[in-house]
Amino acid sequence: MKQLFDRLQALFGVTDFERKRDDLAFLKVPKDHAEMLIRHLRDHEGFSHLVFFSAVDYIEDDIFRLIYMLHNYGTRDTLGVHVDIARENAGMTSIHTLWAQAALYQRELKEMFGIDFPGSPGVDEDFMLEGWDEIPPMRREFDTRAYAEKTFFPREGREKSDPRTHMRKQFYPNWGEGE
């Protein structure tokens, strides 16, 4: 895998090579070289299988990190390709031309993160959130808790205690009273 990295470094400017296991490694590539690199990996390095395609929201750094997980059946190696893209007007070149099923992942990423893949078939259709009118729920600024509170009513008879109040009741019920 290290040799592969050295080759790719010269060709595509990949960085941050990180080996997790003997058969699993990650690397990072600039957005503009990503599609070329992935095509190269598929056609010339034997990574013919797209295992999955996902994203993580690093809101602190103002980026989404795309993760293309590729597998080589010949060597049984798995390679994760990280691509950082800006959160604002997030978009990325579609890879449905490389793997048709990528369109489905891209549709999911559009719905969950709001990342656009222009030209990807059906990318604007609902994936699983039918009738969703909030911001994409996997974006970190989405307040899951507030949404759960307003959407799902609490079960009747639910009661809860707060540790500090509960302990006060047991240990010092009359403390500071009268102020």
């Binding site: 759960a148 509170e149 799902f152 809860k160 509960h166 302990m167």
Partner: peptide, 23 residues
């Protein structure tokens, strides 16, 4: 818990101590 699925409740047999709310 983002779904508010958890409630802290008193449990018989669990005592409140300095280090344990008893919930």
């Amino acid at each position: 818990c983002q779904n508010e699925a958890i409630d802290m409740v008193p449990v018989p047999g669990i005592e409140t101590t300095a280090k344990d709310s008893g919930l």
